[in-house]
Structures are given as structure tokens and as C-alpha cells.
Amino acid sequence: MKMFVLMLILLNVSQHALGVQVYDGEDSVVLPCRVDVSDSRDSVVLWRRENLKDSTVHVRRSSGEDLNNQNQNYSGRTSMRTDALQTGDLSLTLRKPTIRDSSYYTCTVLREGDMLSKTEVQLEVREPPPPPPPPVWPIILGVLVPLLLLAAAVVGFFMYRYNLVMKDREVPQTLIRVKDFMKETRQSQSQSSRDSEGEVPVPPRSETVSVHVAPPPSPITSVSY
């Protein structure tokens, strides 16, 4: 009978290892452990880290938390669900994991000194990934915008100078055209004045109109017979 009970206990022991990965500096990480409610009810749950001298990480009894023998490195950083023994969810929450927390942890369920279940969890805490490189477009804009503004300023300056030069060229041309116009006007007035002073009046031409007058008809002499 004792051998039969021992075999049933061994069948309920879980020896498979679970792997959990997290980055250093995260708020928390959950080490999973689930058993049947029939095993967790009225039992003691012991979380341990075997490679430490003080291997106790967390203990939960039916009466509540028992942290008297907890390793000081985990003080204030571990917790379990308040209804863990009633639901069978015996997962352990570890706050602020660090690289030093990387190791194998065991979740053992005990009842009256007998081991009902044991689950091994491997926790790997990694260095956080390097930050992504800064986007390139701010750098490109930071270079292109000043160059475009400078190019626009240079073009605007040369356009302004070109307009000034063209205006300076247009003024003399306008003055020359005005002078030519005034010169032509004076010459025209002078020529008109000379023409009016030296002109000899020409009498009107008399036109001879020849009128042909027909001779009067000769009288007709009547002859009587």
C-alpha cells in the first residue's frame, strides 16, 4: 500500500523545465507554475534557487506568506496571487529583474512533508538591446534647409542686382530718346518757320476756256414759181 501511494506521488511530480527571457531593467517578470487545484489546496508552495546558499526565494502557506527565511536579494521583490492555492496558479512575480537573477528556479508543492509537484523554470535576464539609431531625415533636413535658404538668398540678391543694372541702363536710353524727340521737334519747327518766311505768293493760275460759237444759219430765200 505504501509503495502504491509513493508511485502516485511520483507520477504527480513535474520535472520539465520552462524557459523565461526578459531584459534587464524591466518592471517585472513572471515565473510560471501551475498545478491541479487538488494538489495546491491546503499545501505549501516553495520557490527556491538551488545555486544559492540561502536558497529560499518565496514561500506560501495556507495561512499566507512566509518570508522569514527569504534570501535578502529577493526581499520586497517577490509576490504570488492571493488565491494561488485555491486556483492552482502558483506563478511567482519577480520585480526589477537583473542579470544576477539569471538562474534555475524550482516551484515545489508540499503537503505534510510529501512532495506533490515540482516545476523547474529557467530565467534568463539579458542586457537591453541598444537603442535604435536616430532617424536620418532630421539630419537631411537640417543640412538641406539651410542650403536651400542660402541658395534662395543668393538668387534673390543677383536678381535684385540685375534689376538695378537694367534700370540704370533704361534711364540713359529714355533720356536719349527724349533728347532725340526734342531735337526733331525743334528741327521741324525751325523748318516750318523758314518755309513760312521765304515763301513767295503765287497768283492763281487763270485758265483760258475756249468757247466755240457756231455761226448763225443763213436765211432761206423762198422762190416762187
Rank of each mutant, 00 (worst) to 15 (best):
K2F: 01
Q86N: 11
D66I: 01
L94E: 06
M7N: 08
S190K: 01
Y225T: 06
D89G: 06
I9C: 00
L150H: 05
K118Y: 10
R100M: 14
G113K: 04
T208Y: 15
S117W: 08
L67G: 05
R77Q: 04
R205E: 15
S79R: 04
L92D: 10
L116A: 09
V209Q: 03
L52K: 14
L148T: 10
L85Q: 11
Q189K: 05
P203S: 11
V136F: 14
S196A: 14
D83N: 15
V165R: 10
A153S: 04
S103Y: 10
S43Q: 08
A84G: 10
P132I: 15
L46S: 00
P133L: 14
T93N: 02
R100L: 15
D168P: 02
P131M: 15
M115Y: 01
S196L: 15
S43M: 03
A17L: 08
P131H: 13
I176G: 00
D101K: 03
P32G: 05
N12R: 04
V200D: 03
D168L: 00
V29P: 05
Q70I: 03
E207G: 04
C107F: 09
T87A: 11
Q187F: 06
V45N: 02
N73P: 07
F4N: 03
N71H: 10
R60E: 12
S63E: 04
T119I: 06
L144R: 07
V45P: 00
G76I: 08
H16A: 11
S102Y: 06
F181G: 09
V125W: 02
I99N: 08
P128N: 09
L150W: 13
A84V: 06
T93Y: 08
L11T: 03
D180F: 01
E124W: 07
I220S: 04
S206H: 13
G88D: 05
S190W: 05
E184S: 02
I9V: 09
S102D: 09
R111I: 14
D36V: 06
Y225K: 04
V30C: 07
N69L: 15
T78H: 05
R111D: 12
K53F: 09
S14R: 05
S79N: 01
S188I: 00
